[in-house]
Computed example of a mutant assay.
Amino acid sequence: MAKIALKVDVDTLRGTREGVPNLARTLKHFDLKATFLFSLGPDHTGWALKRVFRPGFLKKVSRTSVVEHYGIKTLLYGVLLPGPDIGKQAADEMRAIDLAGHETGIHTWDHTAWHDAVRNKDAHWTTTQMQKSWDRFVKIFGHIPATYGAAGWQMNEVAFEQLDQWGLKYSSDGRSAPNLMPYRLMLPSGKAKHVQYPTTLPTFDELIGIDGDNAFDAVQKLLKITQSNPNDQVFTLHAELEGQKLLPAFEQLLAGWLNQGHDLVTVGELHQSWEATKQLDKLAVQPVTWGEIANRSGELILQAA
């Protein structure tokens, strides 16, 4: 059957301290490895409250119980409480993931700032944010990151070019339909050197609450998509969701995928499989494209149709 890459986005201090160890224990139980992408600077989750004016944001919040998953304290960071430095306060939890053999990479420096602003920011702001994340990652782990995965699937052309300047071979920064075809981006500097592996499967928070579905209903929808599907997939989960309240549903999903015969891998292992078949030389080169995903507010990086 197909490969399904497990990509873990870690957005907050609470997600790093609580969700990440929970996921590590679950993955160890199934003898699996995943790609963990860390937010390495300040936790300003409270700034996200300004998204209340975006179309669809309130509907998403009501469906996925943001307060329950993130906690009141986290939602006050940057508003009524100072934003804690995740990389300083949760470095041990990050290093434990690395030592356990999981793939580790960069998610962002300041998750909320990046998510809400990067699309329209200039080169100086973009490269400054990215360099902060790179420097902090190397300080924590003692080695360079294996990969990158954009916060909220938000990027700009300067950010994509920075990935090449860092020498990363692959990244997962956007979304596409459940028929994975890796691709390279056409950037102002030319064809990107790194390969993009977009998230192909809907996330839990895009499925819960739709037609009254709960987390276990979302599992069945995901399993239906991957049943007898010959295409490789990338699934993005969040330490704040699947690593906490949604952990039992995520465990059911892992068991279901294994029963379907899928090979659950890291993004790096997925890249190696495509590299081994020499298919990377034939990848499409596509422009940076923005679009909407069902049940998620706002536009994000989307693979061109």
Rank of each mutant, 00 (worst) to 15 (best):
I4F: 03
L6D: 05
T12H: 01
T12A: 03
L13R: 00
R14P: 01
R25W: 05
H29M: 09
F30W: 13
D31C: 08
D31K: 12
F36M: 09
S39M: 10
S39C: 13
P42Y: 00
D43E: 06
D43G: 04
F53K: 13
F53C: 11
R54N: 12
F57I: 11
K60P: 02
T64Y: 12
E68A: 14
H69E: 12
G71N: 02
T74V: 13
T74R: 00
V79F: 07
L81G: 04
P82L: 01
G83F: 00
D85V: 05
G87Y: 00
K88V: 11
A91M: 03
D92H: 08
R95D: 02
A96K: 14
I97K: 04
T108K: 02
T108A: 15
W109I: 08
A113M: 09
A113E: 11
Q131I: 08
I140P: 00
A151G: 12
E161I: 09
Q165V: 06
K169E: 14
A177E: 10
L180P: 02
M186A: 12
M186N: 13
S189W: 04
S189H: 04
Q196R: 06
T200A: 07
L201R: 04
F216N: 12
L222V: 11
L223F: 11
K224G: 06
Q227N: 11
S228H: 14
N229P: 05
D232W: 01
Q233T: 08
T236N: 13
Q244L: 12
L246R: 09
L247A: 11
L247K: 10
L258Y: 05
N259Q: 14
V267T: 14
V267K: 03
H271D: 14
E275H: 12
T277Y: 02
L283M: 09
A284T: 11
P287R: 02
P287A: 06
V288G: 07
T289I: 08
G298H: 07
L300W: 04
I301R: 10
